[in-house]
Write a protein that binds this DNA or RNA. Sequence first.
DNA 1: CGAGCGCTTGATTGAGTTCAAAAATCGTGG
DNA 2: CCACGATTTTTGAACTCAATCAAGCGCTCG
Lengths: 179, 179
Amino acid sequence: MGDFNHILEIDENSQIKHFKKGEILQAEGQKNSSVYYVKKGLLRSYTIDNKGKEHIITFASEGWLISNVKLADLDITNKVFIDCIEHSEVIVFDKNHFDLSKLTNLQLEENTRLLERRIAVLERRVIMLMSASAKDRYNKFLKTHPELPNRVPQRMIASYLGITPQSLSTIKGEIARKS
Amino acid sequence: MGDFNHILEIDENSQIKHFKKGEILQAEGQKNSSVYYVKKGLLRSYTIDNKGKEHIITFASEGWLISNVKLADLDITNKVFIDCIEHSEVIVFDKNHFDLSKLTNLQLEENTRLLERRIAVLERRVIMLMSASAKDRYNKFLKTHPELPNRVPQRMIASYLGITPQSLSTIKGEIARKS
DNA sequence: CGAGCGCTTGATTGAGTTCAAAAATCGTGG
DNA sequence: CCACGATTTTTGAACTCAATCAAGCGCTCG
């Protein structure tokens, strides 16, 4: 994740916690949303659409931050869940830790870089979803996250790619048959 | 766009410019990317995929900022174009204006809020693309951008929604027939 | 050992694309 | 201001990719 040392300093507003596989760190609409830094393990954030389907927004493995975006000024509230795919060791930052007015200039700069990185990732994902076939998206996923297929159930990868588990299975079959 | 007065202060690094319809403000891979605030008119940012198809990332009408995200630390460079849909009056901020180390704390806070808003919008778009049909996406678009259909060619709306102009035309026909 | 969950595989269906051509609109120069 | 060419939009037919429906297999965990 780089060297965001200042923003990740552990202080009175943060603590190390352990979560078991399947544990929910943050449920929908939770008020005081935290920011989580994954020391070890694997988390995911996802929403549930109005048809009851899960859509994974991000995976966060070792060294990554995960959080819901706080939107004081916007009526849009993305109902986001965060839970645990593997047993994980996580630094939990109280929202106060990321309270802008309490941050130093250096911390704000680091935070900005984190946000910009996230924007770039999201933009690329939007473009992928609009332009690439399911197979292309899966191949791209394998390139950018080569280690995840071993750690994440297929159905979650499908959910991340925006396709059904059945389609992903078929795609995998086609790829395997070629080689 | 809210009240981002501090970050939008005009200084020696910014200037007001007029652009004609069709003019390109920023071409792919341009080094010193600027940030544009639309006083009047309409801009768009878009990419071109490897099949040569345009995909619109954002529309920016009066009161909105538009820019490419700068990613010093990431190998990913989204090749983004910005051009003019209507004759527009734009404040062009030199990249130095948004040079983090030169910003005050207050400006950094405002910048952070802008970035977070953008993330929320992008996340919702990702979820939309993964869960909603073309018709649903179009209806949602009409709700959130009721004025744009009068100002933007259909094919660009289609490009924004991730569908072909033909499909959008068909969808519009269906909607019209119902009422 | 059996129940349940996840993955695979195949048949069918449907939303959206592609290809093609006609109709409408826009823009520009005379 | 009109006319003509260019671009956009509409419409229709054929096709394609991925979703849905459905059945069967294999593994794990209780």
